[in-house]
Design a protein around this nucleic acid. Sequence first.
DNA 1: ATGGCGAATGGTAGCGCTACCAATGGCGGC
DNA 2: GCCGCCATTGGTAGCGCTACCATTCGCCAT
Lengths: 345, 345
Amino acid sequence: MTKPRSRRGGGRPTIADVARKAGVGAITVSRALREPERVSEELRRQILAAVDELGYVPDPNARALASARAEVFGVLVPSLTNNVFAEVVRGIYDSLSDGPFRVQLGNTHYSGLEEERLLQVFGSQRPAALIVAGIDQTPTSRKLLENAGCPVVQVMETGPDPVDMMVGFSHLDGGRTATEHLIEMGYRRIGFIGARMDPRSQRRLAGYRVAMEKAGLLDPRLITTTPVLSSVSLGRELFRDALAKMPTLDGVFCNNDDIALGVLFECHRASIDVPKTIGIVGFNDLDMMQVAFPSITSIRTHRYEIGRRAVAMALAAIGGNRPEQRVVDLGFELKQRESTGRWSI
Amino acid sequence: MTKPRSRRGGGRPTIADVARKAGVGAITVSRALREPERVSEELRRQILAAVDELGYVPDPNARALASARAEVFGVLVPSLTNNVFAEVVRGIYDSLSDGPFRVQLGNTHYSGLEEERLLQVFGSQRPAALIVAGIDQTPTSRKLLENAGCPVVQVMETGPDPVDMMVGFSHLDGGRTATEHLIEMGYRRIGFIGARMDPRSQRRLAGYRVAMEKAGLLDPRLITTTPVLSSVSLGRELFRDALAKMPTLDGVFCNNDDIALGVLFECHRASIDVPKTIGIVGFNDLDMMQVAFPSITSIRTHRYEIGRRAVAMALAAIGGNRPEQRVVDLGFELKQRESTGRWSI
DNA sequence: ATGGCGAATGGTAGCGCTACCAATGGCGGC
DNA sequence: GCCGCCATTGGTAGCGCTACCATTCGCCAT
């Protein structure tokens, strides 16, 4: 004594409707959709025709419940507006858009606690894979990732102890390379300016320290940082602070390109010659760096590619052939531009 | 003859485990979690204790399947890296982070077809609400939105014919205000420079046309556009094109701030005085506009607030009290800065 | 002829949760 | 004292799909 039709559902067609229309069993429809090669060509055609005619779209919730596995990639980033993470996320979306997988995006706001909460929530969905930014998870988060029961990719950085897989590059090397470049170009009193000192920024600073130490140039008064969120205007302010503290400054390595741009604008405003009086290096190499006047030297990082590669590795792992190389270092490139051309311009 | 324990699930606790531990029925646990006021205080306490002890997290898929309603907000934007949409999305996430709702984000890449596809996919999940950017949906998309069976909020723009609700502002008025400002400040041969001419950019251009027409200054050769994706470097190139086409140009209204920044940098490079020789107005008022040298006049738009408001309206509608004002115009502000101070600097 | 094997298809029994109704018990009104 | 009502709580029956076993059939080896 079944009711006329689905009691609660909005009357949308179900797999049973398709099966009836195509004159097959429901399970065959299910197979035709998920593993077409396991169904004879003729039935497959009939089924797809019925799907089309009814406008059937599988219910992902029912699917997830029945198979104990949701076709969802959980993605955790610390910021949605920071261009760097936006690019990573774009890479992830672009790589996933033509497959069956959805993306579940979470914003941790650079908070370990928030990350734990989101991992808890994401875990409850039994995602197909997890992609998380950074390698400095709290012990609790790390445990959650290890017990997630799905491939995990840590992105943005590489490190010695992956939960599962990693795609990124060494921020320490990036910071060192940037600083060494300034030294090579003849700058001596080189400052570090950094906002929102997250672990990656800390490692860039560490790279700066290594290079300065090696050259015998390190002076703690050269370092200006703040935990405040990064922005162009903050770059300007920090640069003024740095100059006030150390008027003989002749170069700055900036935490990121926003800060570098703020420094450049302040130099314009204060009629400080770039690159003669001050050399500037940014980090990430946003599009605007090569357009700025003078154009700004920066460390180009491969954000979009990190997103793509993370998905590729996760998909491989889901498909059963876990890549042998579990930690992928995509490196970076020093893009030398006018802002550090002390002698050549 | 039931099997020892959940056959497929990874052994995570279910609502039945909690019910057993608390000595109540499963349905009571369900209620204690969703409508606590309907369960006596004592039982509620016992149940929450059991939940805590077992580390129970409800399975959103099972929930969605049983209630025919997923606790998901579907969000469609044309770009993930464009700061404007990133801000809207951030507002949405921030407003939703402490409730039960998840966000399902889709990137349409400015494609109507992609939008249709994503709406199809999103619809299959029976979301709690849909938030879509723009008001120019294809007929198919519009139909999908109308039949979604949930609150729908169109964001970024306002218009006469909402599918359901709207939050945004008038891009035409914004374009007109920006152009009128240039005219008032004494500029006459004012160009329009625009990249990726999506419907909103088109309307800003229309606003420019209205203002120029009214002042008797309109000349089609003043308009330079391209369908290419916007960027700072593109702004520089388009400005060079515009100047080549019309060397007597004395002002530009830019489609957006990236373009404006590109124009500013090219002016620096070509030693064109801003604002004396050329006045510049941007659109959106990103942080860097007020830091640039000279600082750049722009139309400040309230992106973050649009995201927040859209969620607030959707939540109200879900809660049963649909706001009486279905179209909310959040307006914009002209931020006058140095880049248009022809006589005053 | 018989058995066995693989390919194709189907039936059944859930996945974990909630809608719907039923049941229980306390209490005030008549 | 009986009825009805409200406040609580529970049982049952799915939601739409897929995992896990059949089952069927053709075909080849023995």
